[in-house]
Design a protein around this nucleic acid. Structure first.
Lengths: 355, 355
DNA sequence: TTGTACGCGTTATCAG
DNA sequence: CTGATAACGCGTACAA
């Protein structure tokens, strides 16, 4: 018995192509193509015949070939810093939904907060001839040449949430300023008189905006923010804890804290509870992002919701506009979403005081 | 008025192709191709010349064309029920990392727990000529014909976590039984004598396994589980709360609870605290999934970690094996990952009693 | 309304 | 070792 190395037992199973349909029906491929793409120059009868056979043979278009021909695919490239936590998965969720509704699939790449990787991701997407590139910048991205290639190939480029500062780009962002303004105002209206701020890295525009919203809310209430009440960090849990300790060591500690991120506020909360300081009676808290855990802590945390799904949907909508608009490269559009403040126990002075 | 450098529509900026390199160097495209793909039949000198020019002109290969020619792309299709929460993002994270290391990009599709959508997703991926399909089933998927097309095209198909029951498929799963066994044994070793179980829907194999692990752990300690100590639900937070109330109403309430999911255990914890019952002194708790919030609750929750990233990595590894193995369609491989118990305060009797 | 022929960028086969 | 040539599947001027 001869040893069989290449056994053909599993038929390589051919995908049925337009040529197959053409041969079967005795017409040209052009006719097939027109019937399938609903072209106007086609007889109604012929069209029906083609469509019928296509269904019968379960014809599936080869997107690759079409993409090669037309120079681009029905793929949307997305670059995000990471996909853990709540924010980016939710945004991607929104992107995915809107994209698939418009007939696009989505490729997701992570930059892991690394410009190098971000650069490579963009290359990868261009090589895949994506129809559009949707980006949220890595934390340490300071120069943006790698995106010029995208634009110069005429591929729609939309930034969301983390956008290049001061650049004229297509972008979808949350009104971080407004969110911070709301949150801080809320704290003041609850009776806080010394509100501190846990600020994030100021080279990221979102953290700039949040800080400014905080400052302006104070100003609107006739208050100014002493230097020592604004503490800068990367907003991790431990950063927030550290910041809170620092604030408590002040001659006059704050009676309210607005954090530019929920993790930082969580750290602050832990420190406060550990030291027996009551929340919200002694110190009220409000954060940013409306992370899942804000509804789990005790007390639950007031936070600004970022409308994640909507941001994703808006990003895709903007892409679609650019993809169809003839002057796409010239019009740089900005979309600004309004945040929503979720008020929970950590900032409700009166209510909790009654308990 | 600044000079405008970026005028994409004016200069649609063609990507440089192999033909360009060939023309420039006065050699044939074949030579270019060989130089770039590190073929053996190529002069070292020629190769260097080609590579140098490629760098200089910033040549980027057109994956689409290569894919068309070879019949498949360097894309990996992933179908998951959803991408919210912790589990699937983490698994995708693992997939992404392993995939990109092997030179593959990832397309993520969501089935939204709907077979119809799952079917369409699979079609989409096949149309994109992906190199492999990685699937975690929708909750209500009971028949699996749509996956036959994948196999019959000779495309590697790997299921992870949610796999078809009783089918012979390539799969990567967690040893849920082992995890439940560990968690329950741990509670018993901490001194619990009446351990209850919050069980999940029993038509899902993972919840069956977890229940069985619980039962066997009891048996191994010479205990049997009274009917009333096992409560079935969908394991949402409120389900867990309801179940806990039910358990507390028993003539002899439990002194430990193992939940088949962290959300359920969270609900239980909230009820216990509200009723002034101490955790872990009066009732010890252990959950499953090691969700992010387990480190945030007070006390922190003991939980079984599902090795999410590793599951993703293992899934890709299995795909790579199948992609290279000649007998791929015939060998159906199963990979079983060992879970890891993260012990936290909610189950540490002695330690906390000292405090 | 339909068919012919070519090109998208790459790889595989065969000749030299 | 190198080169010419033919596919891969589809879209689209151009001709009929």
């Amino acid at each position: 018995m001869p040893p069989r190395k290449n056994q053909p037992s599993a038929s390589p199973a051919p995908a049925v192509s337009m040529a197959d349909l053409a041969r079967e029906l005795g017409v040209s491929m052009t006719t097939i193509s027109r019937a399938l793409s609903d072209h106007h120059s086609i007889g109604a009868a012929t069209k029906q015949r083609v469509l019928k056979l296509a269904k019968k043979l379960n014809y599936q278009p080869n997107h690759l070939a079409a993409a090669l021909r037309k120079g681009q695919s029905r793929l949307l490239g997305v670059v995000v810093p990471y996909i853990e936590g709540k924010f980016f998965p939710s945004v991607i969720q929104g992107i995915e939904q809107a994209a698939s509704k418009a007939g696009f699939s989505v490729i997701v790449c992570q930059s892991h907060e690394d410009v190098q990787l971000e650069r490579r991701n963009v290359e990868t997407l261009l090589n895949a001839r994506v129809a559009g590139v949707l980006v949220s910048l890595a934390r340490n991205t300071r120069e943006f040449q790698h995106f010029d290639k995208v634009r110069s190939r005429g591929i729609p480029l939309v930034f969301f949430d983390r956008i290049p500062p001061g650049e004229l780009v297509n972008s979808v962002v949350l009104n971080d300023y407004q969110g911070a303004l709301q949150a801080t105002s809320h704290l003041l209206e609850q009776g806080c008189r010394r509100v501190a701020h846990l600020a994030g890295p100021q080279h990221l525009n979102i953290y700039q905006q949040r800080r400014q919203g905080y400052l302006d809310a104070l100003a609107a209430h006739g208050l100014s923010a002493p230097e020592e009440l604004v503490i800068y960090s990367d907003m991790a849990v431990e950063d927030g804890a550290q910041a809170m300790r620092q604030l408590l060591a002040l001659p006059t500690p704050p009676d309210g804290v607005f954090g530019a991120g929920d993790s930082g506020i969580l750290g602050a909360l832990q420190v406060l509870k550990r030291q027996g300081i009551r929340v919200p009676q002694d110190v009220a808290l409000a954060g940013f992002s409306n992370e899942g855990f804000t509804a789990i802590t005790e007390p639950q945390l007031t936070s600004v919701d970022q409308r994640c799904e909507e941001m994703g949907a808006a990003t895709v909508r903007l892409f679609l506009e650019l993809a169809t608009a003839p002057d796409a490269p010239f019009a740089q559009r900005q979309v600004v979403l309004q945040p929503e403040l979720f008020v929970r126990a950590s900032s409700l002075h009166q209510t909790l005081e009654r308990v």
